[in-house]
């Protein structure tokens, strides 16, 4: 799964521009399941299991990542941009970006006024992103427009590496991790029938998932995600939210969903029964596609299994490699449980 995740993370695809991720996934699952691409660009896949499931279970993970979109090109050839999905301007300044989906792959940089020329009152303060721009080296608007159009997408330049004690560092672990788990499930033999939704546009408001859930119309949904781990220097106790290395995260509530109480309880019982490292979030924060799925049609019982991830929505997300397995095991245990419930 680690190699699949690395490959997925290195593909660029922000909300609305998931085509390259989608093509990679289709390449992996082709012939191993039935699938279709819906009008929004979601991949809806069905995999026949050894047994017909009593209940329809849907796994869901999103293909998009946070990125940048060009909004305006100045007369000097600088590109003004907006973020697609939430990115803290602190992790934007000083970064390289790439227009990887353009005909000519070109690089740009996000600079800022040199510290030497910054007024004393502004020293050390990160300017808001709306004052920043991408510099592709074009000396004029005309030259910039030979390579870039308004509306083009740019991405952090990052490589996926293993580092430290059993950790992976990359962009886009949110949520290529979920995609990797689902690809691996489709590639394996399953005990029961299962539905998989690789969805678009999570980062800008959980948009693909609601359409996917409407079409699939499942009895139960299991969302696979990456979630903020804040166990960094100077943070302790509940403020850590969750901790890489301590297992899959199953939360009772976040900013988008109050999870089904029974499913939440059952998840921890299953974790104990099957010896799967599992933790919950100690802060009500974040949100994911469960927020859209549980409200679809007449309501869908939904649970989220998340990978703890430091520095989420930056060029350098950090996750624990063992946690990946815990999440996959947890998702599998829940699916066997609810396919048969």
């Amino acid at each position: 799964m680690l190699e699949t995740l690395k490959e997925l993370c290195m593909i660029d695809g922000t909300s609305g521009r998931e085509e390259d991720v989608r093509n990679y996934i289709i390449g992996r699952i082709e012939g191993k399941c039935e699938y279709k691409v819906d009008p929004m660009g979601n991949i809806l896949a069905f995999k026949k299991g050894k047994k017909t499931a009593k209940n329809k279970v849907m796994f869901s993970a999103h293909m998009d990542e946070v990125g940048f979109i060009v909004t305006y090109i100045t007369s000097e050839g600088f590109l003004k941009f907006d973020t697609v999905g939430g990115i803290d301007s602190k992790v934007i300044v000083g970064r390289k970006v790439v227009f990887s989906q353009n005909k000519n792959k070109i690089f740009g940089v996000i600079g800022l006024k040199p510290v030497h020329l910054t007024a004393a009152s502004e020293q050390g303060k990160v300017p808001p992103y709306d004052s920043l721009y991408i510099d592709i080296g074009a000396p004029s608007k005309e030259e910039a427009e030979e390579y870039v159009c308004v509306g083009d997408s740019a991405y952090f330049v990052s490589s996926a590496i293993e580092f430290g004690e059993n950790k992976i560092l990359s962009k886009a672990i949110d949520d290529r991790f979920g995609c990797a788990v689902m690809i691996k499930m489709i590639e394996s033999e399953l005990p029961y029938d299962a539905n998989f939704a690789f969805v678009v546009q999570e980062e800008i408001g959980l948009r693909g998932a609601s359409a996917a859930a409407f079409t699939i119309d499942p009895d139960y949904a299991i969302v696979l995600e990456a979630t903020t781990a804040a166990d960094v220097a100077g943070v302790s106790g509940a403020d850590c939210v969750c901790i890489p290395g301590e297992g899959a995260v199953v939360s009772f509530m976040d900013r988008s969903t109050i999870y089904d109480r029974e499913m939440f309880k059952r998840a921890f019982e299953l974790a104990r029964e099957k010896n799967i490292p599992c933790q919950t979030k100690t802060l009500i924060a974040g949100g994911n596609d469960a927020g859209a799925i549980h409200k679809t049609r007449g309501g869908i019982k939904t649970i989220t299994v998340s990978l703890p991830c430091r520095y989420i929505h930056s060029a350098c997300c950090v996750a624990d490699i063992d946690d990946m397995k815990s999440c996959a095991d947890m998702a599998h245990a829940l699916y066997e449980e609810y396919a048969n419930a």
């Binding site: 803290d88 602190k90 992790v91 300044v93 000083g94 970064r95 800022l112 040199p114 510290v115 050390g124 303060k125 990160v126 300017p127 990052s158 590496i161 580092f163 430290g164 560092l169 903020t228 804040a230 960094v232 220097a233 100077g234 943070v235 939210v241 430091r310 520095y311 930056s314 060029a315 350098c316 950090v318």
Partner: peptide
Amino acid sequence: DTRTLVGANVVVFGSEKLPGVICSTP
């Protein structure tokens, strides 16, 4: 420039070259 540090990839020149990332308050 301290403004460019948060979320940056770094190399630490310890007993070997170690990759890392600069974190800050979430």
